[in-house]
Simulated scan of single mutants.
Amino acid sequence: MTGDVADIRTRRGRPPQTAEQAEEVRARIVDGTAAVFTAHGSRGLSVARIIHAAGISRPTFYRYFANAEGPLHVLLTASNTGLVDGIRAALGDVDDPVTMGIGLIDAYLDWARSHGPMLRPVFAELHDPGSPVSGYRVQALDGVRALVRDRFTALGRTQPDPLNLDTALQVCEFCVYRVTTDLEPDTEPTPEAVATARLTMIRSVLVTLGERTDIERALEIPGLFDS
């Protein structure tokens, strides 16, 4: 039982419910799950905590999801989609590799900002094989790799070496991890910390994946490689 709207509306013994009402309740459950996940991580998820955060009854929860992991998977799927779609939009039809690299970094940072405090448990569990977050990380990286390779092909460039591509992506991951997890609770990264992370990410991506002409062009852009 995973929340099929048509089944919910026609369930015997239940009052009629519109699709809009069903989606509103489902969204409340997912929002409640986000609050619990942010506070306790995936191991702290429970139906009891979710229904308390969502302000619903236990029977209502089970009409939409079979267990506490169900709405978490909805959250993580939306997270992956947001990352891959944001990078796809940033790469678009850009023909300048330097602009493309900077756009990729900014799309990644926009994705991170959209998570707010929830980004902490996401990054804390990225490499935890016992967490469902780690499986979604693999899917997201596969999606980003495919986008970068497709753009290289469109530009008539040699496909990036897999090690170089993974190195560039993991530097980006590490930089965001550093600026989001080395904080006191209920605090946000300073603009200076985010700007430093952005520069490190851009420099790493350009040097790791770019050609000599890309580096020469990047040296002409104020702020990128200034001492």
Rank of each mutant, 00 (worst) to 15 (best):
Y108Q: 07
A89H: 12
D106M: 15
L75E: 00
G70E: 05
A112D: 11
G41L: 08
A89V: 10
A78Q: 14
R43P: 13
A27C: 15
E24R: 14
A48G: 11
A19F: 14
V25G: 11
F65S: 05
F61Q: 03
P59G: 10
G44K: 12
F65Q: 01
F65I: 04
P16K: 03
A22G: 09
L104Q: 01
G101H: 10
G44L: 08
I29G: 04
H52E: 13
W111L: 02
T18S: 11
E69T: 12
R28N: 09
G82V: 04
A54E: 04
N67I: 02
Y62L: 09
I29T: 06
G44E: 07
R88P: 10
E20Q: 10
I56V: 09
R43A: 14
I50W: 13
G82W: 06
T33H: 09
F37P: 03
A54Q: 07
D106T: 13
G44R: 11
A35S: 08
G32I: 07
A90Y: 01
R43G: 15
W111P: 02
N67P: 00
T99N: 15
A35I: 04
L45I: 07
A22K: 00
I29E: 01
S46A: 04
T99P: 12
L45T: 05
E23P: 04
L72P: 03
R113H: 14
P16A: 00
I29H: 06
A68R: 01
S79K: 12
A89Y: 15
G103S: 13
L72T: 04
G55S: 02
Q17C: 15
W111E: 05
S46C: 06
A53G: 01
L45Q: 08
G101I: 02
F37Q: 07
Q17M: 13
T77P: 15
D96R: 06
Q21H: 14
A54R: 02
I50S: 11
A35D: 08
S79M: 14
D96S: 14
I102A: 05
V98E: 00
E20T: 06
T38N: 05
T60F: 03
V47F: 01
N67V: 06
A66K: 11
Y108T: 04
R49Y: 15
L91F: 12
G70P: 04
R113D: 12
A54S: 07
I51G: 03
I105Q: 03
V84L: 08
V25L: 14
T18M: 06
R26F: 10
G86K: 08
I29V: 11
P71R: 06
L72Q: 00
T60I: 08
S46T: 05
A90Q: 00
H40W: 12
A35H: 05
A34G: 10
L109P: 08
A34K: 07
L109I: 11
T38R: 01
I102G: 04
A90N: 02
Q17P: 15
D31W: 13
T60E: 09
A112P: 09
S79L: 14
R49P: 05
R26A: 10
I56C: 08
N80I: 11
I105A: 00
D106R: 10
